[in-house]
Computed example of a mutant assay.
Amino acid sequence: MARVEELLAEHGTTYAAEAGITLADKPQPLYRLLVLTTLLSTRINAELAVAAAKELPRSPSAMRASTWQERVDALGRAHYVRYDESTSTHLGEAADFVRERYRDDLRRMNDAAGKDPRQLEKLVAEFPRIGRTGAQIFCREAQAVWPWLRPYFDQRALRGADKAGLPGDPRRLARLVSGDDVARLAAALVRVGLAKTGRRR
């Protein structure tokens, strides 16, 4: 479908890819996605959140080893300054939480969620600052490496589909692309929808 190919070409970069995260079903990239999700879960420009993700420690152990001020400084280098102090605190708390709950391996959320997307949302929302909106961001991106999540199109993506003249049913949308491109299509639809509303995520 020409419209879908156009959307993927123009807007089909996931936030993880934009942040330089090569997503894989491995502890480090999944943790980096969680950090990016935390950064995107505030009312701040997504470009700043993506830039900040590149500056921060890349594993929960490295995050725990960093000081609060080092994290503030990393956020400052990316101009993520409006919420830098509270975000530094939450990132430290989340690094502790991922050790206590998942032994530093977020793949364990698969079993904890019973491979139920709604349950995964709830588990992700338990991390400091993330909440329901952030959980949906995480799931949209994680479906790239966790096929059981597909198709995951939240309300932001479905609003984008409506504006792009595409079906509003997640399964019909997923049939428009190969399985590996479902996450890219969801990202494209979110970007289209947010561009038209002036919002950022």
Rank of each mutant, 00 (worst) to 15 (best):
F127S: 11
V182Y: 10
R159N: 14
L123G: 01
P170E: 11
A186E: 06
A125Q: 05
I130C: 05
Y102W: 13
F127H: 12
S59L: 14
E141Y: 07
W68L: 04
E141H: 05
L176I: 00
N110T: 04
H79Q: 06
L166S: 07
A186L: 05
R71S: 02
Y83F: 15
A74D: 09
G134M: 10
A74C: 07
P170V: 05
W146A: 12
T67Q: 11
S66D: 03
A65M: 11
Y152C: 07
V98C: 15
E126T: 14
Y80W: 06
G76V: 01
R103N: 14
M63D: 03
A125R: 04
P128A: 09
T89H: 14
E93F: 15
L158D: 03
E85W: 00
W148D: 08
R103D: 15
A174P: 04
L176Y: 11
P167T: 14
E85A: 15
K163D: 12
R175P: 02
A113P: 00
S88W: 05
P60I: 05
D105L: 10
F138M: 11
A157P: 07
R101V: 13
R159S: 10
P57T: 11
V145A: 10
A161R: 02
L158P: 00
V190M: 14
S88H: 04
G76E: 15
R58D: 15
R101Q: 15
A113F: 03
Q136N: 11
A188P: 09
F127P: 04
A65I: 02
A78H: 05
